[in-house]
Design a binder for these strands. Sequence first.
DNA 1: TCTGAAATTGTTTGTGG
DNA 2: CCACAAACAATTTCAGA
Lengths: 167, 167
Amino acid sequence: MESLDRQILALLAHDGRMSYTDIGRETGLSTSAAQQRVRRLEQRGVIKGYRAVIDPASIGAMLTAFVQIQPFAADQPDDTPELVSHIPQIVSCYSVAGETSYLLKVQAGNTVELEHLLAEIRAAGKVSTNTTVVLSIPYEERSMLPEPHSARLSNGRATEAEPDVAG
Amino acid sequence: MESLDRQILALLAHDGRMSYTDIGRETGLSTSAAQQRVRRLEQRGVIKGYRAVIDPASIGAMLTAFVQIQPFAADQPDDTPELVSHIPQIVSCYSVAGETSYLLKVQAGNTVELEHLLAEIRAAGKVSTNTTVVLSIPYEERSMLPEPHSARLSNGRATEAEPDVAG
DNA sequence: TCTGAAATTGTTTGTGG
DNA sequence: CCACAAACAATTTCAGA
């Protein structure tokens, strides 16, 4: 019976401000049943929050880049994420396997600002950096869940055996 | 006067379901003025949408990875993003400068599924891949905008000369 | 571009199955 | 876990500045 929850997650991933009334309509539930399910998904931590998606260029972030990070001292306590987390231009921080230790996604207004930002990261994190500039973004942070078609044509059966929504 | 818009963007980046009533309270505007500003930000494309943030593990995505992509044929029309966009596990696609042409962020349930996913990407996109597995995510997709403190202590003046919100 | 008020719509809670 | 209905709260629209 959890394809209902997946359906709700897909709807809210696509439109985080959709009303419970509309969620109910789309899923065939009453408003209050829809609201109860959403509340349970929030309490279980399945829904971690809601965000407005903001056009980066509109807030002066013309440049996006990925920065591969290698700490200088391999024996030191490795707290790179905390050392650089105060820098607002760092929007994501991933600990990764492979040739480097961390991968950061950063945003800057222009190349000069990016240059300063990289210097700041190297200084604050005691790391070396290897930066890849993003040229364009065909798509970003889509939901893995199938896009909800407004018209209810198909049944809710999953096409393959997949794990149910877990809390 | 656009520090008001930046403040609203910061609030909605942090909580995409915040009510216009609360936005008005935080910014010192009336409810309808807050709503009008949000509507204008949406119409100008500054706010591109709203999303629920979903815990990946809850929908069976235990593994996140970054896949560097190199097309086989350098002379072919390069439509890699379209060739692979139908694969739901690819959540982001970046065109990048540097040694490779594209960077994908992907999600899979386990290593075997990741292996199949990479084979699918190589086949669909006519590309070679170089994959970096994510071990943990200290933080992800934060807003560059300053986090709104609920208590109104500071004035709205920017600390540096920054571009105003543009449409 | 704002306020304030009125009309509409959505949310929340309780009762009961 | 669901539906229904009543009480409450938010949204939307409009007049006026």
